[in-house]
Amino acid sequence: MIARATGRAVKWRRRGDNALRFIAAVPAGYAVASLWAAALARVLPGSRVGATVAGALIALALCAAAAMYAYGARSGARALLVLCLLGVVAAAIVWASVSASGRL
């Protein structure tokens, strides 16, 4: 009985973990990449058009990297946490930069 109950708990923990990894890999990964696309477009040197394009080029690679990290991390919760922190950093850069110098 106990063995079966533990088995079920382990199974549910694994399912929860997989769900968190999926959330980290797909929606969170895309959101973080998007925020960094915006942040890089604001802070990269050179013309605004150039920085915008360069930011998007890098963000596409970030998307793939985020998915790989989400599945490679020690746990799904940890992956989600790290990605959220990275997103917050990028959002702060965008917010600071836009409120300082506005948009074209």
Partner: peptide
Amino acid sequence: YTGLVTLMAMLMPWGAVANYTDEAKISKA
């Protein structure tokens, strides 16, 4: 990767949103 770049304006428009108030401005540039 370059295939993704051909669709970049649709997949990853957020840098443009952060820099420009109007889509027409970036496409003109």
